[in-house]
Design a protein around this nucleic acid. Structure first.
Length: 272
DNA sequence: TGCCAGGTGCTCG
DNA sequence: CGAGCACATGGC
């Protein structure tokens, strides 16, 4: 167990922001997370955050995963004073971070995300891990499952995935797993590419279109200039930026602004 | 009950 | 090239 004081960090907002589907809310202010095959408990009280790992594990993996070396105060300070919408969004999601998630896992999670809602995406991802992910043990002996490898999923037929209730996405997942496992699409190469090239390469994967490719770039490759446009963002753009979103103003980190806006739309969709 | 959810692939013209 | 349509599933 290790404890830090971290500004611009809110685990509740991050867990509910729909960028990662392996958070579980254990109780008020307490979450668990599986990433990089590792289990982590997180507990937050104000700016004080406790992580269930050693300092070495934190410095060697989780600090980077939570993007803690980036200064989100600097991103926020770039928001235009007159932009009432984005200012409200940034205030509401003041503790968001763009997590540095594993590429393969991000590809599959966002193929699942299409025409789907966050609770059910979470269920599907959980089912995929439980059925095909490598079983691991926590310090207390409890078993959890890592995210299944491309090689494992490449052996699956859509019928074998049917208990997960992925719907028509099951065949996309099988096809994409085969493309990756065979090396037809080389993820190690994709990881070294510039944003535009990476996006084009990802578009070759079955079930990956523009929007999903943008999400993979943003969350799985940390190309924070990627700007995914989904139904919520589409509505938001039409309502608040009829003349177009000021992408040039936020060139280089527009994806961070997108994430504040996306979270804000999630938070406010009930009362509107 | 029909609409919607972090869309994509395919098929026409 | 772009509009239109099918595609699975579950919650409201």
């Amino acid at each position: 167990m290790i404890e830090y004081v971290i500004p611009d960090f809110n685990i509740d907002q991050i867990a509910r922001s729909g960028q990662c589907f392996r958070f579980r809310r254990e109780e008020e202010g307490r979450y668990s997370l599986i990433a990089g095959g590792k289990w982590l408990d997180i507990e937050q009280n104000g700016e004080t955050v406790r992580f269930s790992c050693t300092e070495n594990e934190f410095e060697g993996f989780w600090r980077d995963y939570f993007d803690l070396n980036a200064d989100y105060g600097r991103y926020k300070s770039k928001v235009a004073k007159r932009d009432a919408y984005l200012r409200a969004a940034v205030e509401t999601g003041s503790g968001l971070r763009i997590l540095r998630q594993e590429l393969w896992e991000t590809i599959i999670c966002f193929i699942i995300s299409q025409q789907n809602n966050i609770p059910r995406i979470t269920k599907c991802v959980d089912g995929l891990c439980t059925l095909f992910g490598e079983a691991r043990q926590r310090a207390n002996g409890e078993v959890y499952h890592a995210f299944p490898t491309a090689e494992r999923l490449a052996q699956c037929t859509p019928e074998e995935l049917s208990p997960i209730r992925l719907g028509y996405r099951a065949k996309y997942i099988c096809a994409t797993a085969r493309q990756v496992a065979s090396g037809a699409v080389d993820l190690e190469k994709v990881a070294c590419m510039k944003y535009a090239d990476a996006k084009n390469e990802l578009l070759r994967l079955t079930g990956v279109g523009i929007k999903v490719a943008e999400c993979i770039c943003l969350f799985g490759l940390h190309h924070i200039d990627a700007f995914p446009i989904d139904t919520h963002i589409r509505q938001m753009l039409d309502a608040h930026y009829p003349k177009g979103f000021p992408l040039t103003r936020y060139r280089g980190f527009a994806g961070v602004m997108q994430q504040y806006a996306f979270f804000f739309e999630l938070e406010t969709q009930n009362n509107r």
